[in-house]
């Protein structure tokens, strides 16, 4: 089965009515999102609205309880995490998860899959340089600052040269300088034709850097559109400020 609309390659991710329940709680509820190709998109919503759960579904860490999900028109539900990764979808985590007891360089080499070790090393060094971490390549990841770990995790997700990058709160706890580096690199990746989906609480970041925004509440998509549209959307305002 192919998803309509994917034929022209218009949408890189096509999520159709995905659902995930934990016991009695429905974390993601019949959620359909279409992410266009070559974009920086934002995924926002109040705490517990199902953003991270959706990332976990997309990367195969969780099995969905219903719905489908297509990447470049290919069905992805049922694939294992590393298979999904190998197709070209990569992610970072909300709470940093670098391999603390490995060096920065080893963090990147460990997750590589292809080619000769020399090539892999070269790419890893390039990427460290890309985020200004080259001089720290032999430092244990656990010894890096919080922001540096975020950057490391960011480039670790780039090791496989993915087409889709899922970033879970990249701005949280990062100082201005490193954040600017990060946002700058995200723009560069966008320029290289990649699609980036960002979960973020910092509205300044979202409104200034995302071309399109999806809003989740109680696991459902309640709005999508341009930043200025979202800012004016009554439903969104109610979701954030209205109830409770």
């Amino acid at each position: 089965m192919r998803a309509e609309g994917a034929v022209a390659g218009e949408f890189i991710l096509d999520i159709q009515a995905m659902t995930k329940r934990f016991g009695g709680v429905t974390a993601v509820n019949n959620c359909s999102i279409r992410v266009p190709r070559n974009i920086v998109a934002g995924l926002i919503g109040p705490n517990g609205s199902g953003k991270t759960t959706l990332f976990n579904l997309l990367t195969g860490l969780l099995r969905s309880d219903g719905g489908d999900y297509f990447y470049k028109g290919e069905p992805m539900v049922g694939l294992t995490p590393h298979e999904i990764f190998n197709r070209g979808i990569s992610r970072t985590f909300q709470i940093i998860r670098v391999f603390r007891e490995m060096t920065a360089l080893e963090n990147l080499v460990a997750v590589s899959r292809d080619g000769d070790l020399g090539g892999v090393r070269r790419r890893a060094l390039e990427l460290l340089d890309f985020v200004t971490l080259l001089r720290l390549k032999d430092e244990y990841a656990g010894n890096l600052s919080y922001g540096q770990q975020k950057l490391l995790e960011f480039v670790r997700a780039l090791m496989s040269d993915p087409e889709v990058l899922l970033l879970d709160e990249p701005a949280a706890g990062v100082n201005r300088t490193l954040l600017n580096t990060l946002l700058d690199r995200i723009r560069q990746l966008r320029g290289q034709g990649k699609s980036i989906l960002i979960v973020e609480h910092d509205m300044k970041v979202v409104m200034n850097h995302c071309e399109k925004i999806f809003v989740l509440d109680y696991g459902e998509l309640i709005a999508e559109g341009l930043p200025e549209e979202i800012q004016r959307n009554e439903q969104v305002i109610e979701a954030y400020f209205g109830h409770k």
């Binding site: 590393h82 391999f99 963090n107 997750v111």
Partner: peptide, 25 residues
């Protein structure tokens, strides 16, 4: 070795290794 690094990565965090392309199984 790269396999060895993947083993260490899995030991440190299997979930992360998984979504970073390591065939944890």
């Amino acid at each position: 070795s790269r396999l060895g690094k993947a083993v260490r990565a899995t030991a440190q965090n299997a979930d992360v290794a998984m979504v970073c392309g390591v065939n944890v199984e």
